[in-house]
Design a protein around this nucleic acid. Structure first.
Length: 270
DNA sequence: CCCTGAACCTGACCGC
DNA sequence: TGCGGTCAGGTTCAGG
């Protein structure tokens, strides 16, 4: 489910239910996630949640004595559940507040993560080397141009590299490249500054629009407030291989690039 | 440093 | 209906 817009939708959905509340207990039913859930996670118990922020696709639960670093992986979701609601098979973690509020983490594929750090989370190994947030001014055409020089890999792999920029997953990489008119296989190091300006604008547009619409609902994604996202209806290329380009009617091509489905228009993207 | 492919895991779907 | 193969929104890690 989650790319950055889905994670941000989740954050916005659950934040008002949790911030300022005291954690009564963390129930870890299945500790075998992307990494084992460390016992230290229980240090959050008895503490008040100071803030719930996002860095890339990581959700950060800030407490006075440390931080929970959570990730939704490929299939994870978080929702506010009714007190007393029985957990389903893939509901691996519950965060229960002293007022009865219940945050429930479901993740069938278990690529998600729940970790604890008592250091500055920004220096945690998983976060320390992340690129800029895509919706900030630090992410601009000059930056991408500088980072891409000498790179032979495809521009699509390049913008999906979280050390370059966070939050651009497979759906939005496909969409942004279409909007910018850039062929996904083009070598990152041989793209002009003007085209990178355009690509950056496209990435910001696509991500912002999707956040605005509550994310892209594929399969069963729902935000923390239980509402589905509506961005799917506006997808230009993702999931549309073989169907006509919305600009020129040419059938869209679908290939695999770095083991990921890649869809583009051979006429509109060069 | 850069790049590629494998790995983690379950479930849905397709063709036989 | 069942079985095997393929694919899925992410990310780290090992190896060349």
């Amino acid at each position: 489910m989650p790319e950055l817009p889905e994670v941000e939708t989740t954050r916005r959905g659950i934040e008002p239910h949790l911030v300022g509340k005291r954690v009564k207990a963390l129930h870890v039913r299945q500790p075998q996630l992307r990494w084992p859930v460390p016992p230290a996670i229980h240090q959050a118990e008895g503490r008040k949640l100071k803030a719930l922020t996002r860095r890339g696709k990581y959700l950060l639960f800030h407490f006075s004595n440390g931080t929970i670093i959570a990730h939704l992986g490929m299939s994870g979701s978080m929702r506010i559940a009714a007190a007393g609601e029985p957990p389903l098979f893939h509901d691996h973690v519950d965060l229960k507040c002293s007022d009865g509020t219940l945050l429930r983490f479901c993740d069938p594929r278990r690529f998600g993560a729940w970790l604890w750090t008592d250091q500055d989370p920004a220096r945690h190994p998983l976060l320390a080397n992340l690129g800029p947030e895509p919706l900030t001014d630090a992410f601009n055409g000059d930056y991408l141009l500088a980072r891409s020089r000498g790179r032979k890999s495809s521009v699509k792999s390049f913008i999906m590299d979280s050390q370059v920029v966070v939050g651009v997953g497979n759906i939005y990489a496909n969409e942004a490249l279409f909007l910018a008119g850039i062929h996904p296989k083009r070598a990152a190091g041989r793209i002009s500054g003007a085209r990178y300006d355009k690509l950056v604008a496209a990435i910001k547009t696509v991500l912002a629009a999707s956040i605005e619409m509550g994310g892209t609902t594929l399969r069963d994604f729902v935000g923390g407030d239980g509402k589905p996202g509506y961005f799917r209806q506006t997808l230009r290329v993702y999931g549309r291989g073989g169907q006509p380009c919305r600009q020129c009617q040419t059938p869209l091509r679908e290939i695999r690039l770095g083991q990921r489905a890649t869809v583009f228009c051979k006429l509109c993207q060069t």
